[in-house]
Each structure stands twice: as structure tokens, then as C-alpha cells.
Design a protein around this nucleic acid. Structure first.
Lengths: 225, 225
DNA sequence: TCAAAAGTGTTAGATTTACACCCATGA
DNA sequence: TCATGGGTGTAAATCTAACACTTTTGA
């Protein structure tokens, strides 16, 4: 293979993952204490380096899979973070990605083995390097996305109650919603199907369980919340 | 300096610029025929490589300045493009940026020296590598941005008519707008100031010239179009 | 004198928001 | 029996969208 660009400098390229979860009516992200230098012991996003035989997106998926063992994770790019001094040792440019997972699908032992924890996004500790900026931008993008595309379901179990769904949107938007107006809008979306199953965990009376029907959505994609 | 990451591979990192302009009631971008291998002769965005002593954002600004001689250009990151084979020769990951400039501010001789042209975005030729994807994403992001932040003025002269402003929004949104409704909304925005100057170029009767007042906007930032 | 762009208000319909009570159940 | 969350409809207010004619002037 010919080398075309000898005169230019190369950089290390990494990916960092903002992994969102929803639990206890709160939006959470998965962070851990860095186990490597530089920055050992500081709270940090989970990341990895991009290899030469994989795309940047593939590197992010691989990294997510390494951490969670999960596949088919919803993931979107947040952007490139490229300050000169963002890594204290070497020039490392990082591409941030956010992911949406259902916390119940993530095995707790695997989580502990990797030394990561679910942390309430409203009560995040200081983070390593520019990771706080990454989280901020990821959150903003996710908030916009979840308004216009049915991706919020990725944060919930397959079966969920309308109150759970409402609490999710409240956590993401940072404001309370009116129960009746919220349910009115849900009713208009045929792809949010009522099942005949009842959830008894959340209340004494029990609440109907719903599911997202992707088929129906694809036929008539008119999501708006 | 210590090397922490010896085991990982480095990549070339470039920036590519989607430079939007507005002329002849059409949204345009600045592209040129590649003067280097690989891809010599193909239509391409203007780009450059990231140096180790500058941030990625700085590299984009430097590249924009190299091409246009302009400073204080409005510029936002589009994202990282990192397919393995996006560059036929070497592994090059590129960070795309879009910029908004007023075509009148760009010296035509300088433009010709760099061999770039303003091309109607609705009639773009095929572009080198993944540049078409970059343009698509840039356009989508710009379209969203221009709805909620007063950045469209960057594409117009300091003094502009309401018809010019309307044509700009029509070009970006890809649909015609109602003149009366459009002007009603403009009137509500105090930071779009009517001057007592008249433009006689666009019509026989003459149209009032307006300007964007950033001070007023900062006091009461309520833009929405 | 006429073609071409500038400028100007009103109304119907659609959307959004505010709001309060009864129900079923487990503790 | 009572505390807790589940479930339901209406009306006012706001926002959006549709629509047509007069003015000015250079060619």
C-alpha cells in the first residue's frame, strides 16, 4: 500500500460511551473509576481505542459489547472531542457515542466485574477530562431525539406501564407532564399497544402493560411526544 | 513525554468543511475538484489535516481561513466520519464541519485561486468518498439550527430585505412560505430592526432594509422561525 | 401603461393547556 | 378503612394556516 500523507501527523483515536439507563424514575448513566493512567481513580466514561481494521462506529459497538455483552444496542454519535490537552499523556481525539439500554438487560455481575455503576445524571460526580462535556452534549442530543423518534422504549422493558413511560419522559425533559394530556397523546399512537397483562408491582390496583410495536410504527410512523 | 498507549494504532485525522452560502435565492456550497491523489479530479469538499499542536476545532477554523481569508466564521461540527475504506490510500478519519458565510464577503479571485465554486445544493455533482454523506448531515443539522437560533443572518449581507430573508428560509426548508405569516413573525422579533434604508436592486418599488441586532437579541433571545 | 415585487389583517381550524374526580387494591 | 397509584373528558386559550388586494415605479 502506498503512503500518501507522510508529511502529516497521526493521532490516537478513541471512542467514549455515554450509556443511558432508566431506573427508579431517574435517568442514569454508566460510569466507573478509571483503572488506568492517566487519570487513575477518577470517574470516567467507558471507552476504548479505534483499531485500524474497524470503522469508528464499529469500535463504539465493540466497546459497548465488551462492557455489557449486549448486541443490537441503540447507539448514536455525539461528536468528536479534540482539544490538544484533553488527554494528559498523548494526543488522543475521542469520538463520543450515546447508547440507550434497558437496565434490566444488563447483568449485574458483569457490571461489577467492569467496575461501573449506574449514577443518577442529576447527581454526577466530577468526571475525567472532558467527559462532562460529552455527557452534556449526549444528553441534549438524546433529549431532541426522544421527542421525535420512538427510541425511549429502548430504556424500558418490553412491557411497560403508561406511568413508567411518562416518568421516563419527565426524567429526560426535566419537567413534569400532565397525566391526562400525556395519555391522550399515547392513545393516538396505534403502535403503542395495550396488552391484556397487568403490572402489580407498581401499584395495588395494578396498571395495564403496553408494548411498542415496531411493525405498526413502520407502517405509519407518526411519533411525537 | 511518556507514551501511554503504545499498543494502539494511530490514524490520520482530517477536517472537511461544508461551506454554505446563499445567492440567487439558492442555497449553495463551496466545492472544488481535488488537486491531489487519491481522487484527483473528483468534486470534493475543502479539507485539511489536523496538526498535533491544534484542537480539531482550530484545525477546521484554520482550514476555513486558508480557503477564504475570513475570520470569525460561524462554524459547527457535523461529526466524525470513520469508515475503514473512506480514503483509498490510508486510514483517515475525518471530522466534518459546516460553516455559514455571506458569499459577498468571499473574494472571487481568492476563490478562483483555490479552484472552488459555489454550487447549488439541489444540483450537486457526485462527490469524492463520503462527502455526500457529510453534506447531507450538515444540511440536516443546519436546517434544525436555523429554526431556533438566529444564524441565518450569517448567510446574508448586514442589510437585507424581508424577501431575501424569506427566500433564504425557503431555500433551507425546501418549501415555500406564506409572505404575510412570515412577516408577522418577523415583526414580533425586535432584534430584526428595520432601517430607513431602501434597497432598489431587487425591485422597482424598493424594499426596506433590515438588520440583525445582536445586542437586542442577547437581552431577549426569543428566536423562532 | 403595465409588469413585478412590496406591503398589509382577518378568520377558521387545529393544537395545546389546564384542570378534578372516581376506582381498585393491599396493607 | 385508608393511602396509593390508575384511569378518564371537557373547555378555554393559543397558535397556525389560509387567503387577496393595493402600492410604487422602472422599463
Amino acid at each position: 500500500m502506498t503512503t500518501f500523507y507522510q508529511e502529516f501527523q497521526k493521532v490516537f483515536l478513541s471512542v467514549d460511551c455515554i450509556i443511558f439507563g432508566f431506573d427508579d424514575n431517574k435517568l442514569k448513566i454508566l460510569i466507573g473509576k478509571r483503572q488506568m493512567d492517566p487519570g487513575r481513580g477518577e470517574w470516567s466514561l467507558y471507552g476504548g481505542f479505534v483499531r485500524n481494521d474497524e470503522s469508528v462506529d464499529e469500535a463504539a459497538l465493540r466497546t459497548l459489547n465488551e462492557l455489557t455483552g449486549m448486541r443490537n444496542i441503540y447507539m448514536r454519535q455525539v461528536g468528536a472531542f479534540g482539544s490538544v490537552d484533553r488527554d494528559p499523556g498523548e494526543r488522543v481525539v475521542s469520538i463520543a457515542y450515546y447508547a440507550l439500554i434497558n437496565v434490566n438487560d444488563y447483568d449485574d455481575h458483569q457490571r461489577e466485574e467492569h467496575g461501573v455503576e449506574w449514577v443518577d445524571i442529576e447527581a454526577m460526580p466530577p468526571l475525567y477530562s472532558d467527559h462532562k462535556d460529552m455527557v452534556g452534549k449526549a444528553r441534549k442530543l438524546m433529549k431532541e431525539k426522544i421527542k421525535t423518534e420512538p427510541v425511549g422504549f429502548r430504556l424500558l422493558p418490553d412491557l411497560f406501564t403508561l406511568t413508567q413511560l411518562q416518568r421516563l419522559y419527565e426524567a429526560v425533559n426535566g419537567e413534569e407532564l400532565d397525566k391526562r394530556n400525556f395519555r391522550k397523546r399515547i392513545k393516538e399512537m396505534d403502535f403503542i399497544e395495550k396488552t391484556d397483562l397487568i403490572d402489580k408491582k407498581g401499584s395495588k390496583r395494578g396498571a395495564c402493560l403496553y408494548r411498542f410495536n415496531r411493525r405498526t410504527y413502520n407502517e405509519f410512523p407518526n411519533f411525537k411526544l
